[in-house]
Amino acid sequence: MTVSSNQVPQIKICGIRTPEALLKAAQLNINYVGFVFAPSKRQVSPEQAATLIQALPQHSNLQTAGVFVNPTVSELKKVLTVAPLDILQLHGQESPELCQQIGDNFQRPIFKSVPIIGEDHSESHVDRAEKVAKAYEGVVQALLIDTHDPEYGGGSGRTFNWDVIPFYQKAAQKYGLQLFVAGGLNPDNVQELVGNYELDGIDVSSGVETDGHKDIAKMTTFVERAF
């Protein structure tokens, strides 16, 4: 069951690789941009991310997130020494214990991706949502439900069955976590999503690209329709 949303979600555009896309994100007054450090066609080096971050307007409130898959503390330290990220977004099988260790070491908010596998929207998702939210309570700041991608952990460009969203919303709220939704979002479906579900945040990547590159017009339309 869906409800009409009066809440404006936080917006994150992931997979930023160029100054043009970064500056447009800042102009659009969204909340977050993501730099992908895990193996991906959108992967950037710590040095590239640092150069982009330095290009942000001085008074921008845009926060930067680094996307990782199963990183070690050592790997994160190497990146953070070069690129001053605000948030760590984990897209692998990172346990609550590892997330706690990462949070303690780097004192940054953590967003934890939760893959939604298949089209199942049965009651099994009630139990899974409860289990996941309870496990990460007090360890991460947000859960990000995303279409399962066995190769990269995310960025597949495919949606999952949105009928499961309320299960994860309820569990996230119960345990004091924010809930972000990713997976196949684009200018054509974002209005439906935010109109039907009261989400804390949404995360888009390939849906605002053309031929693998961020499309300024699509970014603009996506943000306009998300509001």
Rank of each mutant, 00 (worst) to 15 (best):
Q7R: 07
P9T: 02
P9S: 05
Q10R: 09
I13T: 02
C14H: 02
P19W: 12
K24D: 06
A25L: 00
I30Y: 00
Y32E: 02
S45A: 06
E47I: 14
A50T: 14
A50I: 11
H59C: 11
H59K: 11
S74I: 12
K77W: 04
L80R: 03
D86F: 03
I87A: 06
G92L: 06
R108Y: 05
R108K: 15
K112I: 03
I116P: 10
I116E: 04
I117C: 15
G118N: 10
D120T: 08
S122R: 13
S122Q: 12
H125D: 11
K131G: 12
K131P: 09
A133H: 03
V140F: 00
L143A: 09
P150N: 11
P150I: 13
P150H: 10
G153E: 06
F160M: 10
P166V: 14
F167S: 07
F167Q: 04
Q169E: 12
K170D: 10
Y175A: 11
L177T: 07
A182E: 02
G184L: 04
G184R: 01
L185I: 06
P187I: 01
V190W: 00
Q191I: 06
E192I: 08
V194H: 00
Y197N: 03
D200N: 07
I202A: 09
V204Y: 03
S206V: 08
E209Q: 11
G212H: 12
K214E: 10
D215P: 13
I216P: 11
A217D: 15
A217Y: 09
K218Y: 09
T221I: 15
F222A: 01
V223H: 00
